[in-house]
Amino acid sequence: MTTPLLMIEDDTRLAQMVGAYLGQSGFAVEHKATATEGLARLQQPGGLPELVILDLMLPDMDGLEVCRRIRAAQGEMARVPVLMLTAKGDPLDRIIGLELGADDYLPKPFEPRELLARIRAVLRRRSEGAPVATQVLRFGSLDIDRDARSVTVAGQACELTAYQFDLLVTLAERAGRVLSRDQIMEAVRGRELEAFDRSIDVHMGRIRAAIEADPKNPKRIVTVRGAGYVFAKQQD
C-alpha cells in the first residue's frame, strides 16, 4: 500500500524527480503547481494526503499564506502535516513557517534522501501521537534545531554538513560530559565516515569554525586532552 503525499511546487521538473524518488519508497506523490490548485485539492471531499510538501515561493500565493490557510481550515485538513521547502540560508522564513504551524522545513537545494528521512520522521511522530513542535537546544546565542536540522548563532545560519550536525547534536545533548572519540563515533554510527580518530578532529574543527566566536580559542566545544571533547553547558 502506498502513502499519498501532496506536493505544491511550481518547479515541475523538481516535482517529477521527487515523485519518482519517493515512489521507490512506497509514497505516491500528487503534484499541484500553484497554491490555488493545492488548496483546492485539500478541500476536495474524500481522502486527504498524509503530508503536504509545500514550496515557499509559488506564482500565485506565498507558501506561508498557504500554510496559514491549512492550519485555519476546519476538520482534518487543519491537521495535515506540512513540510515546507524554503530558500537556503533564510532563517526568518523558517521561523515564520514553523510559527504558522509547519511541522518541518527543508532548505533548497536538498538531497532527496534527506527529504525522505524528514517525511518519515514527521509521519512517525504523528503516528506515535508525539508533539511535532520543533525541539531546539539553546545555549546562549546558539540554537540547535534538531527537527529542522539547522544551527544558528545570534540568528545567523551556520553551514554544517549532515554529519557535522549529528556530531554537534551528540555533544550538545550530553552537555557537560566528556565524550571520547569512540563514544562520539558510536553515537553517530551509520553515517559515511572513515573510522579514524583524526577524522573526528577535522570535523570538530569545522564545527568550531561555524559556531565559535574564536575557533582557535573555543568556548563551546572544548578539547579535554587525552580524553575527548566536552560541550560547555554555560555559554554566552
Rank of each mutant, 00 (worst) to 15 (best):
P4E: 11
M7I: 03
I8D: 00
E9R: 04
E9K: 03
D10R: 06
D10I: 03
D11N: 15
D11M: 02
L14K: 01
L14P: 02
M17D: 09
V18C: 13
V18Q: 05
A20R: 12
G23E: 03
Q24W: 11
Q24N: 12
A28G: 02
H31S: 11
K32G: 00
T36H: 12
T36E: 14
T36S: 11
E37N: 09
L39H: 06
L42Q: 06
L42T: 01
Q44A: 14
L48R: 10
P49T: 08
V52A: 08
I53G: 01
D55I: 00
M61Y: 02
M61G: 04
M61P: 06
G63L: 10
R68P: 02
R71G: 10
A72W: 09
E76L: 08
M77V: 15
M77P: 00
R79G: 11
P81T: 06
P81A: 05
L83C: 02
L85C: 09
T86L: 03
A87G: 13
R94F: 06
R94Y: 00
I96G: 01
I96E: 13
E99P: 01
G101E: 07
A102T: 07
D103Y: 05
D104F: 00
L106C: 04
L106H: 04
P107Q: 06
F110K: 03
E111W: 10
P112T: 10
P112S: 07
P112Y: 07
L116D: 04
I119F: 09
R120C: 03
V122T: 15
L123P: 09
S127A: 15
S127F: 09
E128D: 13
G129K: 05
V132K: 15
A133W: 13
Q135F: 11
L137V: 01
R138H: 14
R138K: 15
S141V: 12
S141Y: 04
S141L: 11
L142C: 04
L142N: 08
R146Q: 15
D147G: 13
D147F: 08
A148C: 12
R149D: 01
V151L: 09
C158N: 05
C158T: 05
C158K: 14
Q164N: 07
F165E: 02
L167N: 01
V169L: 05
V169C: 11
E173H: 05
A175F: 02
V178C: 07
M185L: 14
A187Y: 10
V188C: 13
R189T: 11
R189A: 15
R189E: 12
G190D: 08
R191N: 12
L193I: 15
E194G: 12
A195Q: 13
D197C: 06
I200P: 01
I200E: 00
V202F: 10
M204F: 04
R206A: 14
A209R: 09
I211N: 02
E212L: 06
E212I: 08
K216T: 13
P218I: 12
K219R: 14
I221H: 04
V224T: 10
Y229A: 04
K233G: 06
